[in-house]
Amino acid sequence: MAINDQNIKDLNAIRKLIKQHKKNDSIFAGVGLFVIATLAVALLVLFLDLVIDGYPKMNLDFFSNFPSRKAEGAGILSAWVGSSLVLIVTFFVAVPMGVAAGIYLEEYAKKGWFADLIEINVANLAGVPSIIYGLLALGLFVYEFGLGQSILTAGLTLSLLMLPIVIVSTREAIRAIPVHIREAAYAVGATKWQVTLHHVLQYAMGGVLTGIIIGMARAIGETAPVITIGALTFIAFLPPSPVTDVVPFINFAWLDAGFTVLPIQMFNWISRPEHAFHINAAATGAVIIILTLLMNGIAIKLRYNIRKKIKW
């Protein structure tokens, strides 16, 4: 029975110890929950504040008016049109190039110094501050190429920012496709490009799309590089319409036009001392936030769905 007593005494000691240790567990769990809850509340308050401040301006006039020296009548017409046109350029430049580069790196490039070099570059480009891209664009597009402070310049600049995002997401999506799918296609006599186009790219489409949406959302909110290339902050006219009523129904004069974009309009209004302009800024901010959160939300949902659905 001596052994028995010994055991029971030990057990009591152990239980006391566990209780003590578990206290640390509960303390940390409490701290963790508190931190997450505080952050959630803080961010919620910030966003709500933005929406509430901007609410009085949220009407159709705001979207159909030009900016003005009077805060009351000012709107974001030139800004949202400018943002849309710039994004069109960005999309058509960054998507084909990014997807092609992603395909090259995953499917074609042989392991070696060249592939490594591209890879290191892509990884580093993703971390370069956006304002540096602005400087590159200022020196290269605005002056070397003589494109001026135009929609084309802004679109190209933002496509530089978006490129690494598209490349990385394309690669990840392609990498998730197992070898045996490719082997099955090769086995029936497909060429490499046919395998890539008919199979790899098809199955990777969801992942590629995610990257494109996230990249576009980022491009909408980017301010610094567009300021750096010298975008005007006060624009009370619209660029020429991309669509015309004469054959061939499209023109490219808009590419050359001066412009402003939503975040620059917001920045401009924040910098004014009058409170009335701050309301305009809040409303613009709310528009930007809603757009980017919506786009990112769709992308993240898409990604989770893909992860859940596809089991090779």
Binding site: T223, M266, F267, G285, L293, N296, I300
Partner: peptide, 14 residues
């Protein structure tokens, strides 16, 4: 992940 995508000009306002 959603918050990582919030534009910084908005944080400047805050």
């Amino acid at each position: 992940e959603l918050l990582v995508g919030v534009p910084t000009v908005v944080f400047g306002y805050f």
